[in-house]
Design a protein around this nucleic acid. Sequence first.
DNA 1: TATACGTGGTC
DNA 2: TGACCAAGTAT
Length: 290
Amino acid sequence: MIEPILLHTPVLEWYSENARDLPWRADDATPWGVLVSEIMLQQTPVVRVLPIWHEWMQRWPTPKALAVEPPGEAVRHWGRLGYPRRALRLHACAKAIADEHGGEVPSDHATLLALPGIGEYTAAAVASFAFGGRHAVLDTNVRRVFARAVRGDEYPPTATSAAERRLAEALLPALGAPRWGVAVMELGALVCTARSPKCADCPISNLCTWRLTGKPAHDGPARKGQTYAGTDRQCRGRLLAVLRAAHGPVPKVALDAVWDDHVQRERALDGLITDGLAEHLPDGTYQLPT
DNA sequence: TATACGTGGTC
DNA sequence: TGACCAAGTAT
């Protein structure tokens, strides 16, 4: 096991020099701003989140501001970020914060975890980055850095394991856990990337087990591919794009126009309604949830 | 635990 | 050029 201090110093120094200037990391960032960023960043690159985050925070600077809107407005302004159920959950999250927490984002990990759309990672991230809590933030970047540097594997396991949690906890510094967490994430995002890691720029390449052992290729089953073309997901995306653009009820023919396969189209539409992303009105039209 | 869930950029 | 990947969550 590598001594934690041997990782801390170089990673933190590297972060001081290389951290991106992101608005949710600014001194004046609010817990709500951090929470919004974390939801938007789930499975979504920073560059696509940036403009939506700015618009969102200007429109809804507080949880209460969002909570009084219909959920469809959240879905509309989510734009093309992807996974629009996140917009719905963020709206539900705002309502829960407004109704049950006096409009203030909770600082406690367990309380955050109970909110819609907030799972293990996001609860730790908000508790740590917004409130200074000492939590292990295990996102895909951190998991990859630890897998390589400590375990010597090219990639972490598919699902977060107990061993990974133990390791992350063990590496957590007594002081400055939030900065350590964001520093490791940044290292994974900018240097220790999935496909072409920039080991020449890495502050811990000298003790990285994976590099020291010759960067063995990932063994085991191929990682699950994300099919998309022709799937229900693509169909749902097409349908929802029509509803977002409409600003009002949409006749069925407008939806029929964007996807040929009748059976799949109906299934996808039903799915959107089941998920609460669309409403079917008595007159046969469709719209974003009110 | 495996699967569904958007979108767009990269090599 | 199509597979892979991006600060995951819910079921």
